[in-house]
Amino acid sequence: MTTPTVSTEPNTRANTHVGAKPFDLSQPSVRTAPVSDEHAVVSIKDFNLWYGNFQALHHVSLNIPKNQVTALIGASGCGKSTLLRAINRMNDLIPIVKTDGTITYEGVDLYDRAVDPVEVRRRVGMVFQKPNPFPKSVFDNVAFGPRLNAYKGDLNALVEKSLKRAALWEEVKDKLKGSGLGLSGGQQQRLCIARAMATEPDIILMDEPTSALDPMSTDRIEGLIHEIKEHYTVVIVTHNMQQAGRVSDRTAFMHLGVLIEEGPTDQIFTNPKHEMTERYVEGRFG
């Protein structure tokens, strides 16, 4: 590895980035202090995913512990967003996607034929990379999810609770009727988090939630993630390794659709076992 040699293999996706040695797509994941099945709220087992003929995830297995923050890190195109979106079956919206393996949530296989993806997304909320509030009022944005299923309770109270949990209530309580698009970028993203929480999910998936935000807004969102893990299990995809270090309890490093290493965040960052993880967290590639 120290002296690059010329590879005789054709230069395919599988052996770029990592020097000359072909990348082994079937290598086992390195696990530190693995989460047992009993403690996992979501359990991904031997999961494969294809976009048409291109395989984006290779035999990924990962247990996600309840009420903790799990960060997925890795270079662009490593499949971390795909894995995240597999958890609430957002990939189903792409017609050419095929999957194999299981993702169980509290013992139910999310990919079972009897399971409606709409049900899955009700229990597993999602926050996207770019703030995407609906062009509706702040109130209607938060109330959108509950209204979809004809929410029977006190909608005002639910909206207030969600906005408070998203640390946005104080800023918007006087302009609930104003457009969600009138808020700043950071406020919009917190509105999206409040919107996701209003459907009362158990898990919140976050796909690079701060990549479109300034440092101040990022700081607020990170603080928020710390606070909400008391109520929710959070899975976050991030490009920012400092962020992964700051907010997450466990970290999983992926490369080219393979889960390379997972473990407690401090272990991954201070004492990585796999050489590629080490190179990545030190910022030497990716």
């Binding site: 996207f128 609906f134 959108f144």
Partner: peptide, 11 residues
């Protein structure tokens, strides 16, 4: 992104 937000909320 709006469609995804809607699907993501269980619509």
């Amino acid at each position: 992104t709006l469609r995804q937000a809607s699907y993501g909320l269980g619509a």
